[in-house]
Amino acid sequence: MTKLSVNINKLATLRNSRGGNMPNLLKSAADIESFGAQGITVHPRPDERHIRYKDARELKEVVTTEYNIEGNPIPNFVDLVLAVKPTQVTLVPDAEDAITSNAGWDTIKHKDFLIDVIQTFKENGIRTSIFVDPSFKMVEGAAETGTDRIELYTESFAHDFAQGMKSEGIKPFVEAAKRANEIGLGINAGHDLNLQNIRFFKENIPGLLEVSIGHALICESIYLGLENVVNMYLHRLK
């Protein structure tokens, strides 16, 4: 079964919009795990507009499944990850002012930088993953950095799926996944995956280990309830 890691950034956005501590992020993470999720993901950004660095540290004491911290490996982020020591760190090349992640790494251009950062994390016992577009060249470049896994950036698939172009949209992801399997990279995926497209994606991607889903899952939960939605995803990922 592909594991579900729930990104709780949007819960932090809701909390921050009003001040105070509602919803309680730590309790929310514990509840999501109790509903069956196999991981919790956070993506702190430098301006702390949703997840704060303090949240990332405090969640370490709460999360009992897999803990995944995403972000651009600027010095403050690297220091945070080394202090927290999550199960996994996912490296994302987002600009400081990005609304959300919008591209994978150029693993060839940034190869030396990624090698250094990944080596630091792996020396500290932290599994590494690199956010990449579904490209043979970028997947092969990722392998040369020493990363354990890649996370396929799935926005284009989700867009094509919504337009009725399932076969066209999934094809580059299938090919990228096959290549990753051939060269020994684990495969994660995330971005704009939702209850409508997750089953099709999972059924077509060989060796898919984990998906990280936040925005869609929280939006769907407004209508259907958080516990119900978590279990709907788990059912589709079996």
Rank of each mutant, 00 (worst) to 15 (best):
E220P: 11
I8H: 01
N231T: 14
S212Y: 01
I32H: 04
Q119G: 08
K171I: 02
L11W: 04
G36F: 13
T154E: 05
M165R: 11
R199I: 05
G186K: 12
E168M: 08
I150Y: 05
K27R: 13
I99M: 13
G146P: 00
G169Q: 02
A83E: 15
K238G: 14
N21G: 03
T145K: 01
G71E: 03
G19W: 09
S34T: 13
I99G: 06
E123M: 12
G39L: 11
I198D: 03
G164W: 01
Q163C: 09
P172T: 07
G20N: 04
N231G: 10
E48V: 04
R149C: 14
I218Y: 07
G164F: 00
E66I: 08
V230P: 12
Y53C: 03
K122L: 08
K122R: 15
D47G: 06
P75C: 02
L114W: 00
P44V: 03
F201I: 03
H50F: 01
V174P: 08
G20K: 01
N7E: 07
Y153D: 00
D148A: 00
I69Q: 03
N16W: 06
E144M: 13
L217N: 11
S167D: 15
I222V: 15
P44Q: 03
T90K: 02
I222W: 06
E48H: 07
N197M: 04
R57C: 09
L217W: 06
H235M: 14
H50D: 06
M22L: 13
G190L: 08
P46Q: 10
E182C: 07
V81H: 00
H159Y: 13
K202S: 14
E70K: 05
I218D: 06
T65Y: 00
V92W: 00
G36N: 09
P46F: 06
R52V: 09
V78T: 05
Y233N: 13
S129C: 15
L208F: 12
S221H: 07
H43L: 14
H159R: 12
I118T: 09
R149F: 15
K137C: 05
D31P: 02
Y233G: 15
I150D: 00
I8M: 04
T145N: 03
S101N: 07
L195F: 05
V211Y: 10
V84S: 00
A189I: 10
A177R: 01
G141Q: 05
H110D: 15
D97P: 05
A216W: 04
I126D: 02
F131G: 02
D192N: 12
N68Q: 09
K10A: 12
F113N: 09
A216C: 10
K178S: 13
E151T: 11
V42M: 10
N16I: 03
E33L: 07
N102Y: 11
I183D: 12
R236Y: 06
D133P: 05
A180L: 12
E140K: 07
R18L: 14
G36A: 13
V63E: 01
H215E: 07
G125A: 13
L185A: 11
E203D: 15
L209Q: 14
L234I: 15
S5P: 02
N16Y: 06
G19L: 01
H110R: 12
R149I: 06
T145H: 01
P134G: 07
T145G: 04
H159Q: 14
R199T: 12
I99N: 10
Y67E: 02
A216Q: 13
L237F: 07
V132Q: 01
E66G: 08
S5V: 10
N188I: 08
E96G: 03
V6S: 04
V81A: 01
E33W: 03
N197C: 04
